[in-house]
Design a protein around this nucleic acid. Sequence first.
DNA 1: CAGTGGTCTAGACCACGCA
DNA 2: GCGTGGTCTAGACCACTGA
Lengths: 252, 252
Amino acid sequence: MPTSDNSSPPVYREIAEELRSAITSGSLADGDRVPGENELMRRYGVARATARQALSLLIHEGVVVAVRGSGVYVRAFRPLRRHGPRRLSRELWGNGRAIWQADSGQRTFQTDTVEVTEIDAPEHVARALSLAAQERVFKRRRRHLLDERPMQLAASYLPVELATGTVITEPDTGPGGVYARLGELGYGPAHFTEEIRVRMPTPEESEQLHLEPGTPVLDVMRTALTEQRRPVEFTEMTLDGSAYVLQYDFDA
Amino acid sequence: MPTSDNSSPPVYREIAEELRSAITSGSLADGDRVPGENELMRRYGVARATARQALSLLIHEGVVVAVRGSGVYVRAFRPLRRHGPRRLSRELWGNGRAIWQADSGQRTFQTDTVEVTEIDAPEHVARALSLAAQERVFKRRRRHLLDERPMQLAASYLPVELATGTVITEPDTGPGGVYARLGELGYGPAHFTEEIRVRMPTPEESEQLHLEPGTPVLDVMRTALTEQRRPVEFTEMTLDGSAYVLQYDFDA
DNA sequence: CAGTGGTCTAGACCACGCA
DNA sequence: GCGTGGTCTAGACCACTGA
């Protein structure tokens, strides 16, 4: 019985390993078809569940995608580049020093489901904006699409006393967006702090971002501060991890 | 037969959903035991494979961990904070504005498996350092531990002509590390650029970082440049995604 | 309509933990 | 030594793709 004798990996891991190295070695390229369940059953003489387990491993590692009724395919990574401090990055940019090649060319950006509400500040938002717990804030929620594909969910929060009665409470905030409007009100952001963490998505996020299994998301939390370091806006973004490379440039 | 009638989710997803909401609602707290396979079989009247599939989903989402011979438990998230431009961040720091609380207090950092070799520059390294392909570079490989726990794999690359004959080629580079030594040689880093992406780990990385299933990793690629914007060092780091929060501060 | 992946059942043996 | 999760088999029906 080939369960697993002493200290040798289980069968499904060995099958996965062979497929994985075929992919990393390049003998299977991006988009290529990978041997499916039936093929693996034949080739290795295993039950269907075992073949599926091997494929499941690769799917959860994000190296392949399964398409119902069609087959299993090698997955590509073609990210969009997101700059932190953009102004600084351009000068560094021309030298061809990028590690991951980002998609370029003309692409269409869209934003859908803009929604503005006034709510009690959640605890972490109150902390970020230096507000008392439960103080009222405006919340602006939206989803960003690139070439029709959703890649980012975002929600911004602003203290009510800054936003009330301004265009900030409207879905469309006009040229330059919220930051430009804050500037006109004398609260122009001068400093930013961003916190990044990684995790696997919730099922809701998977659905809204059309994520393949095995795709992590990035949480980016940005606080915008005035020259006097008063926090005026807080944004939490959830990014499709397979769609982004984040770039930050700074000085010693 | 409850396979899945029109447009209702499969059984294992519904089981997972119930467990997930018990966790997010707080009725199951960090470290609490989650109903295991046998319990789910009884409670929902499903086969073992179906109960396992539900748990597998949660495991791959990173919300629970399975411990062989013991049970399934709610997973905690206690990150370490990693600052990009540290100097700037300190002033922002005291205000209690952090979104995720980072572990503080005395913790022990260690580095093991330091390994220095001279190799042909891989393609992406050559690009980062503005070298011709295959030029020789020194590679410094290491693993960083926090409280005995591995959390980061790192490899740095330096052009041979900068490092040859210096302490940079030794395992221990002395106080201030490689950057201090580069400074003494007249190549002190003044600018940095970091590129970040997310992905699921390879099995080797899972093993070296002791990663639970459902834990993504962060790839951080940093290039250090002199005042004249000459690239002098390139570092690629792979971080345990469950162990880190990255922080970047910058000005408008 | 043949082939693919998705869900589900019923059963087996194993390695490990913990009391 | 019982209960836990880990691996594996054999077989069923389903939903979907694509020629």
